[in-house]
Design a protein around this nucleic acid. Sequence first.
DNA 1: CAAGCAAACTGTATCGTTACAGATTTTTGA
DNA 2: TCAAAAATCTGTAACGATACAGTTTGCTTG
Lengths: 342, 342
Amino acid sequence: MDEKTKSNQASASPSLQERPTLKTIAFMTGLGITTVSRALKDAPDIGAETKERVRLVAKQVGYQPNRAGVRLRTGKTNVISLVLSLEEEVMGLTSPIVVGISEVLASTPYHLVITPYRFSKDALAPVRYVLDTGAADGVIISRTEPKDPRVALMMERNFPFATHGRTDMGLIHPYHDFDNEGFAYEAVRRLAELGRKRIVLLQPPPHLTFHRHMRKGFDQGIRDFGVEAVAFGAVDLDNSLTEIRAAFETLMRSDDAPDGIVSGSGAGSIALIAGLEAVGKKLTQHVDMVSKVPSDFLSWLRPEVITMNEDIRHAGRELAKAVIGRIAGLPAEELQSLSRAI
Amino acid sequence: MDEKTKSNQASASPSLQERPTLKTIAFMTGLGITTVSRALKDAPDIGAETKERVRLVAKQVGYQPNRAGVRLRTGKTNVISLVLSLEEEVMGLTSPIVVGISEVLASTPYHLVITPYRFSKDALAPVRYVLDTGAADGVIISRTEPKDPRVALMMERNFPFATHGRTDMGLIHPYHDFDNEGFAYEAVRRLAELGRKRIVLLQPPPHLTFHRHMRKGFDQGIRDFGVEAVAFGAVDLDNSLTEIRAAFETLMRSDDAPDGIVSGSGAGSIALIAGLEAVGKKLTQHVDMVSKVPSDFLSWLRPEVITMNEDIRHAGRELAKAVIGRIAGLPAEELQSLSRAI
DNA sequence: CAAGCAAACTGTATCGTTACAGATTTTTGA
DNA sequence: TCAAAAATCTGTAACGATACAGTTTGCTTG
């Protein structure tokens, strides 16, 4: 009788073999489940000594909150979703970004979930999925466009996210971006310093935001350093390596052949070099090249290429910090960062 | 009164604005929540016409089961955990494996969660975490060792998993592996055919299983093709590129210099080539090299290297299929696969 | 025509957690 | 001294799904 009156909440003694729950701790401490729950969140209406006791027992039994329970009750998933195109990246930018994100999430309760999509036109689908199903507390996207519908959608729903790359819609949101404008400007400067006069740019596809940035820096460099820009048709970084090489070979054989190259990606540079060498020209001798690279493999095999390193892992870290900050309610203005080549 | 008697389960009419639940469908069809639940799983005790009706409405309102609800009630997480070392892979093998896994999971209810660990000695920690918290229904691990404690632990707990690489403990479990023995044997054969006599192997670190395989194929090739093996000290694929280059430079300057190289990874090959060229030797002229590569970038920059491609993306697909198969209860014997160079 | 049975459907309890509205005891204040 | 206030603690309900143990209805069947 007395027993029954005493504690109705944690009635059945929980098996100490199973994974401990609040009930386990409640049973062990003789407290109510609610009290234990509130003690563990350091609520103000729980006594200091009680909190200490609960914390001790919780630690002792290795209590970890059941994610499904929390998620069902509160809607909080403790998940960050990284939205990835299954097509992008021959050269694997995904690895370092995943590592960077993971590094930051490791010291938080967040898990990293990969949410893939298949074709560029479906880019909105994974974002919609996360929003509709509440699959995550925050989202990280890349391949950002100036008028990015994903950004518009998430802003409209007031959903926390961060973008790898900026937008241009007059919307303020968390992002991390590489200073592609600075890169391209500096690249042209270096080539001009080497006496190169006719510069070509292997640029990102026009629909992505960083196309503009890289183009802007490039064009400014062309003007400031008194050199000439050579057009590279419709070929961009999203073309296959084979296509890039073929196009560049054609360009090099034409009257319009450049003597300086700015390449927006390490993978693209490989194709350019192949095209260059196919027509019998040599780096540093006939042509100089500045390439943005995600790792130093290019320097190992072609030290003649001037490389500027984009630290993708750092980008991952910044992006993770940005989403988490947004989830925590920090203003978007404070969650924007730009990094320069290292 | 009548109304109240009629339906107690789905009493309050669910807001049609919110995400639909079983309750929503129950309300719309006038059925009980239980009936709807069972109808959607095609249970035998529900009438055919009812099932049809429920399915129609469910589709109409875009019903998707709440993962937290399912997980809490059944313990099923619908999550596959990919356990990753944050240190491995300068050259990003992670990207293609993630893509491969995602491709397979896309047509299933499974989500892919990245579970990282920091140092090699902590390799057991993430697995323990998943097991203890029930964070996933299945696990994929790599960097497999002959006596792998992670494998032992998961087998003991009867937990579904698949390994990238085999073990040697007399335990039968799902795996996918590259035929490193075949690769090394074939590599030696090719070098011997080119007239090379003194072959060195840049091999995986000795504690990983595929060290044995690669070593075995290499040694067999050495015997079968009547060539000589040159020792490469304690340097292996886990050393930094700088260390590999330095060691190889030393080796090339010694009396013991090889004229043929078998390299177990694309990244390692880069360092070897740098070391080689630092002593003024040339590929195909003084030395020939066969390298295992994850992508074709090496062929672009050094076509002189004979490459054998390991399709990591395919490995990802196979691993995903294997874990899912294991979860579905298929016997481990049927979930083992080996792939050769392409 | 009543008992038996199959078919079709439903209510209750539960998973682990937390919001909320008390309940109980102690302290304060006049 | 006694009511009000503060300090602690607790039970109930709910999140969405499903296992389980019914209930209802309509037919057989002897």
